[in-house]
């Protein structure tokens, strides 16, 4: 086993929204070098800290299953809609066929698509909950993701539950073209229907949340919170730089920047996420 993993490191200041590293895989080192402060920590310790660097507090990517462990009461999660499987309506081909890309990603991640959802409880309070898996094609939203998000709101509507969605995504999935775009409308319409039951919808934005997801249900939370230093915005930094032909200011589009501009409600440390969500649910739910 190598001492250090060979994952590509993504610095917080790097301007592409491209990526928390993939989930631990074969060949993962037992030591980990922090992306933020470059200090070295045992991987087991990092994992105990929910992938938050013990030295500098850098929030590194958390594999999707652990997200539910982090916030839900132990054993309370019941996954639903796990059988939804993506198709290839356009017959899309770039360097690879979309079909093959889907198969390959399924093999590498064990996920059928970039979203897991179901019901669970936080401090005893039932919630309809879902989370993006950035490790699946950059957390991009195609028909399956859009349908699962829609069902999070549908279930919350039918069972009169609060809804919680964790987003971590580059936006709509190009490989499903117009269908991906229309998921923005579909999810937002379902969310609107859910509003009638007067239960809170909390949107949690993780690193990164951009494009068509930011520009639909993710920014429509009754409460919108973010993890520290997450990159959040409509256009990715590379696109903006190309358009205005200027370097972007430091910290641009980060959680702290958005909070300063009044665009989100709170920044919550990962270790406090469960308690803070529980607090919100008891105040609003």
């Amino acid at each position: 086993m190598p001492w250090f993993s060979k994952q590509k490191k993504v610095k917080a200041r790097e301007s592409t929204p491209a990526a928390p590293p993939p989930p631990p895989a074969k060949g993962e080192g037992i030591w980990h070098k922090c992306e933020g402060c470059e200090s070295v920590v045992a991987r087991a310790e990092l994992e105990r800290e929910w992938n938050v660097c013990p030295s500098c507090g850098q929030h590194e990517a958390l594999p999707i299953r652990r997200r539910f462990e982090l916030v839900l009461d132990p054993g309370s999660f019941e996954e639903l809609d796990a059988d939804l499987t993506p198709q290839d309506p356009l017959g899309f081909v770039d360097a690879k066929k979309y079909r093959d890309r889907l198969k390959g990603t399924y093999k590498n991640t064990g996920l059928r698509d970039a979203f897991i959802s179901g019901v669970g409880s936080i401090a005893g309070q039932q919630v309809s909950i879902g989370s993006f898996a950035f490790e699946f094609m950059g957390g991009s939203m195609g028909s399956v993701v859009g349908e699962k998000v829609t069902r999070v709101f549908d279930r919350a509507f039918e069972r009169r539950l609060p809804a919680i969605v964790f987003s971590s995504t580059g936006g709509a999935r190009m490989q499903e073209g117009i269908f991906s775009l229309m998921q923005m409308a579909k999810t937002s319409a379902a969310l609107h229907r859910f509003r009638a039951v007067r239960k809170p919808y909390v949107s949690v934005m993780l690193h990164p949340t951009t494009g068509g997801v930011a520009a639909s249900f993710a920014w429509l939370g009754d409460v919108v919170i973010a993890e520290p230093k997450a990159l959040i915005g409509f256009a990715g930094p590379r696109v903006i730089e190309q358009t205005i032909r200027e370097k972007l200011p430091p910290g641009f589009q980060r959680s702290e920047f958005l909070l300063e501009h009044g665009m989100i409600d709170a920044i919550v440390h990962r270790h406090d996420m469960r308690d803070r969500l529980g607090q919100l649910l008891s105040l609003l739910g």
Partner: peptide, 25 residues
């Protein structure tokens, strides 16, 4: 939609998102 600094500062994504919901209603 315009990808610029000011547009991001003033919530381009939020503005679009809100319209999706309002139009659906």
């Amino acid at each position: 939609a315009y990808p610029g600094i000011g547009a991001e500062e003033r919530g381009q994504a939020e503005a679009i998102a809100t319209n999706l919901e309002v139009m659906s209603s």
